[in-house]
Design a protein around this nucleic acid. Structure first.
Lengths: 232, 232
DNA sequence: ATATTAAATATTGGATCCAATATCAAGGTT
DNA sequence: AACCTTGATATTGGATCCAATATTTAATAT
């Protein structure tokens, strides 16, 4: 069940310093979560009314999201939610693999048992999670936990930012994908490899895991394209 | 000679669709180029006056730059130019190497003689360039030319974005660095390796080049820290 | 004299207002 | 009938105005 924009707005009412911050965070969630669909036109006063603010915080928030690549401005015409191009999914998987394997190699030597246990804890929760949207969120939490010691570095921020983009694609395709259950075994293997303390081996496990997940997505996309072709 | 903010403003007067675009682009250049120094307070009405516009386009532009990581907002206090942390320089060199080696590997098989010649053309210009700011810009042009066939991909955009950040650091340190001349030989080697058509070998040459340049920067930083320590 | 509190000032955050531009529709011309 | 032009409408871009907050200064009390 995809959360509606209205729900998101009410939830995140009073926990930000400025309206701009609040609107930006909420819209970000809305776009990543699919409440605002790819290519959808964004009417500023409409959004402003929904948030109960003037157009200004909305405009500032949209500019931020533009810089993040989540919306696109067409001068004097309006902003649209950035389009999801299927070909980009696999490219992003590739980038993700490149960055995260590198990050993991750096993180493994510094991993404490405490962090590892926290990661496992997330996995346990993941086992019980059925909601697709929340699954994506927690999958991210699991992986990012392994890089926790890199917090504050550029690399950490970069990995997190990439995750956000990929997540948009994932959540859209994930519904039809029963990969979630299968990937848990690989997640456990990954933690084991990390605990063993060999950076290269851990990175290799991660690479295989990400490649497999990318493969599943590719397969799904191929199926959809075949379907689209048949309809024509 | 670092261009002043005033010069930049006058130069880029009437070549953008909206003021926000113009202000954003100009401020970006100003921060990267050093016209606005690291940690410097940004007064909105002051900037607005300098640009001859109201505060609004300035605010929108600043929000974009915030998302790009070039400025930081302190709620109700103002925006400051993001600080340059010396430790981050080497980290960014590392990220750059990771991303660009990957990009080069993908680009090499697609490289046409035309692109290679254009790259060499930039190198020729680079030989004659003495101005530090312009040297940094053209160094970037050279490297990005090699990835020209990746235009429109996420990877290309990511590499370009990272370049921007690194460039801030580079231009600050470059003045004291006579690495510029020495690196030209490596640039030529790089083009030769690309022309040979072996992706892995080309990537290795690039990695070595970037490592050497990172080394030079590290050395400079170490020297500066020793100096700072002596003064204390 | 110092510390704490209160008021004044400056600056940002947000709302409202106006102008510029793009789209859409209608009418006229070839 | 098709195309171009012109005007109406909607929506964004930009300016100005007001409110909220942070900082600084001054005054008072200990």
């Amino acid at each position: 069940m995809v959360k509606t924009l209205q729900t998101l707005i009410e939830t995140s009412r009073r926990q930000y310093r400025t309206m701009t911050e609040m609107v930006a965070a909420t819209l970000r969630e809305a776009i990543i979560g699919g409440a605002l669909g790819s290519g959808e036109m964004i009417r500023q006063d409409q959004l402003a009314a929904a948030f109960g603010v003037s157009r200004m915080p909305v405009r500032e928030a949209l500019r931020q999201l533009e810089a993040e690549g989540l919306v696109e401005f067409l001068p004097h015409r309006g902003a649209v939610v950035a389009e999801l191009k299927p070909d980009e999914i696999l490219e992003m998987c590739e980038i993700r693999s490149l960055l995260e394997c590198h990050a993991l190699k750096k993180a493994v030597p510094t991993l404490s048992e405490d962090v590892l246990r926290r990661a496992e804890c997330v996995l346990d929760e993941l086992d019980e999670e059925n909601d697709v949207a929340r699954w994506g969120e927690m999958n991210q939490r699991f992986h990012m936990t392994l890089y926790d010691n890199l917090r504050g570095t550029r690399l950490y921020d970069l990995v997190a930012a990439q995750y956000q983009h990929l997540d948009r694609y994932i959540r859209v395709t994930l519904t039809q994908l029963d990969y979630a259950g299968k990937s848990q075994a690989e997640h456990r293997m990954l933690v084991a490899a990390c605990r063993a303390g060999d950076p290269d081996r851990a990175a290799e496990v991660l690479r295989a895991h990400l490649a497999k997940s990318a493969g599943a997505i590719a397969e799904l996309l191929a199926g959809q394209q075949a379907l689209a072709g048949a309809q024509r």
